[in-house]
């Protein structure tokens, strides 16, 4: 199946064209952008990013770990001071807090890798449609379609101000 690549200058056009393509039933749509634009967030996938779950789970694991190690270690090596309990919670809040941030941050990094599917592709080899112009200032929309749909997709891409539309050679 051929893939068509449309080149755009503005994120609004990219969002519109990818929405149109997906509503026409094209499944394999990909968007390349030089920077982050909120209008492109739902261009290919609906709903918020699942990175948030990673951060939440990481942060909660950190809090639990922080309080667990401090309380457990105090009891494992008990030092009796004035008949008070071995563990004292207020100073351990600092450790629980710091580990929440540490684990949450590292889990966010892992979440970025897992949800963003990084590292992506094979080393040193980009997608056939990708080129250095998308790390300049242009946007690209790639869609895989049947031979019979090529004209329709071409027309649709141009109707949204595509600067150029080409067939991607795999």
């Amino acid at each position: 199946m051929p893939s068509l690549l449309g080149i755009y200058d503005l994120p609004g056009d990219v969002a519109a064209v990818s929405r149109r393509l997906r509503s026409r039933g094209f499944k394999d749509v990909e968007v390349y952008a030089p920077a982050a634009f909120p209008e492109l967030d739902e261009a290919v996938e609906d709903g918020p990013s699942r990175v948030r779950i990673w951060t939440l789970v990481g942060g909660l694991t950190g809090v639990v770990t922080g309080f667990f190690i401090t309380i457990w270690m105090s009891n494992d090596w008990p030092v009796m001071i004035g008949g008070k309990p071995f563990a004292s919670i207020p100073p351990y809040v600092v450790i629980g807090f710091e580990l929440a941030i540490l684990f949450g941050g590292l889990a966010t990094l892992l979440g970025l890798l897992a949800v963003g599917k990084l590292p992506y592709g094979s080393f040193g080899k980009n997608d056939a449609a990708y080129s250095a112009r998308f790390s300049a200032e242009e946007f690209g929309v790639v869609v895989e379609c049947q031979d019979r749909d090529v004209r329709e997709v071409d027309a649709l891409m141009r109707s949204h101000d595509a600067k150029e539309v080409t067939v991607v050679e795999a």
């Binding site: 968007v31 492109l40 990013s49 699942r50 990175v51 948030r52 807090f97 941030i101 949450g104 990084l118």
Partner: peptide, 30 residues
């Protein structure tokens, strides 16, 4: 890491930066 600026990559990147900022703000004060 094979970054190409695809929509999924940017979306998770923006989210990660937002969350790290949320974590780093109390961290820097702490």
């Amino acid at each position: 890491l094979g970054w190409q600026g695809t929509s999924i990559q940017w979306k998770s990147h923006t989210r990660s930066v937002l969350h790290l900022s949320g974590l780093a703000t109390p961290l820097v004060l702490s």
